[in-house]
């Protein structure tokens, strides 16, 4: 793994993965003004327990929760272009500029990343809002009186998990590459999603999952296996849970569709969402929307009497992080409230 040692104004060495004992968030942007919102950034970073390194083509800036904004210099050749290249952050088409966010481990291997292009000119507010939401989620998930994470690896993992949840939604950054552009004839269809009627043009072969994600921008519904084996794509159609990857969008023009984006009531989380946060029922968060949709439908079905019923009737939703104990705890806590 190539590493990129940095030097601060006083000549001290700083690494990309560790700033004076804190894990870092590494952001790539075209324009990001830390100074303008320094105090706000500091507050969020304090809650997250992380420092922030912002890399633009011109400069590298560092903000740790209790310090001023510092400028860093890259030790060695290549300038910031080498960093952009190393992390795979490239300019987009049509002048859209790249945005990237990374969490790295102690070997500077990337443990979490999001790369997208943005048409905006300044990413300051976007990043700040996302960090604020991440910090709130983190606080809700852990008890304030008792620090949950002591070891650095745990902080990195938890940071990555919380950021996944926030960024995938907040910035609408897609994780998987878009399916090949349609080449065949399209048909006009109507879908009723989360109470809104959408008209869209799709090829008949487009799955409900791809239509939701790629055409309606509802990326809360996840593509895992794309073959009905993992349940990450679970949505409700006519109130029933189905795998949206194994059905065509064109087949669902009459019944209302509910996705994870349609569960909350404004800013108030659905009680199942709140329970997942309260019980820390995820690590990476990728399966979580499917788990939550499936759990909501399962309780509606009304056949769950015990924890073992939960395990059996949730067996269509896999979690590669194996957060099952906490998922079961979250669901049973909602059952308990009737």
């Amino acid at each position: 793994m190539r590493s990129f040692p940095l030097r601060d104004a006083r000549g001290r060495l700083v690494s990309l993965h560790d700033v004076r004992g804190r894990p870092t968030l590494i952001a790539f942007a075209s324009r990001l003004d830390l100074e303008a919102r320094r105090d706000q950034f500091r507050g969020e970073l304090r809650s997250l327990g992380a420092a922030l390194i912002v890399i633009t083509r011109e400069t590298i800036a560092l903000l740790a929760p209790d310090d001023d904004v510092e400028t860093l210099e890259l030790v060695g050749d290549g300038g910031t272009d080498a960093l952009f290249a190393h992390f795979g952050v490239k300019p987009g088409a049509d002048g859209a500029h790249p945005l990237g966010l990374f969490v790295v481990d102690g070997d500077e291997a990337v443990v979490w990343q999001q790369i997208a292009t943005s048409a905006g000119t300044d990413d300051t507010e976007e990043l700040l809002a996302a960090l604020r939401r991440a910090a709130t989620l983190r606080q809700e998930a852990s008890s304030a009186a008792q620090p949950l994470f002591n070891r650095r690896e745990m902080i990195v993992t938890s940071l990555a998990g919380v950021l996944s949840v926030v960024f995938l939604e907040r910035l609408g950054w897609a994780r998987s590459p878009a399916p090949p552009a349609p080449t065949g004839a399209t048909t006009s269809i109507t879908l009723q999603v989360n109470g809104v009627t959408h008209k869209l043009d799709v090829e008949p072969r487009v799955t409900l999952l791809d239509a939701l994600r790629e055409q309606l921008g509802l990326t809360g519904t996840k593509k895992g296996c794309d073959h009905g084996q993992c349940g990450a794509c679970t949505v409700l159609v006519g109130g029933r849970r189905i795998d949206s990857c194994l059905t065509l969008a064109i087949m669902h023009q009459t019944q209302p569709i509910t996705t994870i984006e349609g569960l909350a009531n404004g800013n108030g989380l659905h009680r199942m969402q709140a329970a997942f946060v309260a019980h820390d029922a995820f690590q990476c968060g990728y399966c979580t929307p499917g788990q939550i949709m499936s759990a909501v439908a399962m309780l509606e079905e009304g056949r769950v009497r015990s924890e073992s019923d939960v395990r059996e009737q949730m067996s269509g939703n896999l979690c590669r992080c194996a957060a099952y104990p906490n998922i079961v705890a979250a669901i049973t806590s909602v059952m308990g409230k009737g």
Binding site: G228, G231, T234, R240, R241, I242, D243, L246, T247, S294, A297, M298, E301, Q313, S315, G316, N317
Partner: peptide, 9 residues
């Protein structure tokens, strides 16, 4: 057989 989601389909 299968999962609840698939049995619904």
């Amino acid at each position: 057989g299968a999962s609840p989601q698939i049995r619904n389909m």
